[in-house]
Computed example of a mutant assay.
Amino acid sequence: MAPVSILLNVIWILIGGAWMAVGWLIAAVIMAITIIGLPWARAAFNIAVYTLLPFGSRAVNRDQVTGVSDIGTGLLGVIGNIIWFVLAGWWLALGHVLTAVVFAITIIGIPFAWAHLKLAGIALWPIGKVIVPA
């Protein structure tokens, strides 16, 4: 990870990025408690780690990385994402958007607002995504 990414990640954690990672962890735990929610729990946990350290990484479709489609990138992934959206995606995305609005008020906060907006998009449709170094 580049020094600038490390610095941005430290600032991110200190000024409030950790609270959204906790939100993702809560979603992962709730999904894991219900045995049916295990596929969503895995995705939520991976994105919780990404939410904690968003600079220096990016989320891409898994089939772009592996070159082949799988369950998460096909029709079942779409159905899973719709269920995710109804159960947890909308409120995680709302949290990211509201936090982005607060950060966008200042010029210094714009990179953090942009990171929250990217995370809001992932919050709506996480199944089939993988986190890779930028």
Rank of each mutant, 00 (worst) to 15 (best):
V10T: 12
V60M: 06
A48E: 07
I33F: 08
A59E: 06
G56C: 03
L52A: 06
G17P: 02
W40Q: 02
D70L: 03
Y50M: 04
R42V: 12
V10Y: 10
L53Y: 06
I47S: 03
Y50S: 00
N61Q: 14
S57C: 06
V29D: 07
T34A: 15
G17Y: 01
A18V: 15
W24I: 01
A43S: 13
W19L: 14
Q64L: 15
A44I: 02
I71Y: 05
M20I: 13
L8T: 01
L7R: 09
V4I: 13
M31G: 08
P3F: 15
P54W: 00
P54C: 04
I13L: 08
D70Q: 02
G16C: 05
W24H: 00
I11M: 06
F45R: 09
I13D: 03
A28R: 00
L52W: 05
F45I: 09
W19P: 15
R62P: 09
T34K: 13
T66P: 01
M20F: 14
I71M: 11
A32I: 09
W19Q: 12
W19C: 15
I26R: 14
S69Q: 11
W12Y: 04
G16R: 03
A44R: 00
Q64F: 10
A18I: 14
D63R: 10
V49S: 07
A48M: 03
I26W: 15
I15C: 11
A48N: 09
A43H: 04
V68D: 07
T34M: 15
Y50R: 02
T66V: 10
I13T: 08
L8R: 01
L25M: 12
P39R: 05
A44Q: 00
V10E: 07
M20D: 09
P54E: 02
I26P: 08
R58F: 12
N61L: 10
R58Q: 15
F45P: 04
I30G: 03
D70T: 03
W24G: 00
P3M: 14
L38I: 14
T34N: 13
T34G: 13
V65D: 02
A43W: 06
P3C: 14
P39E: 08
V29N: 05
A44G: 03
W40E: 03
L25G: 07
V4K: 11
G16Y: 09
D70G: 04
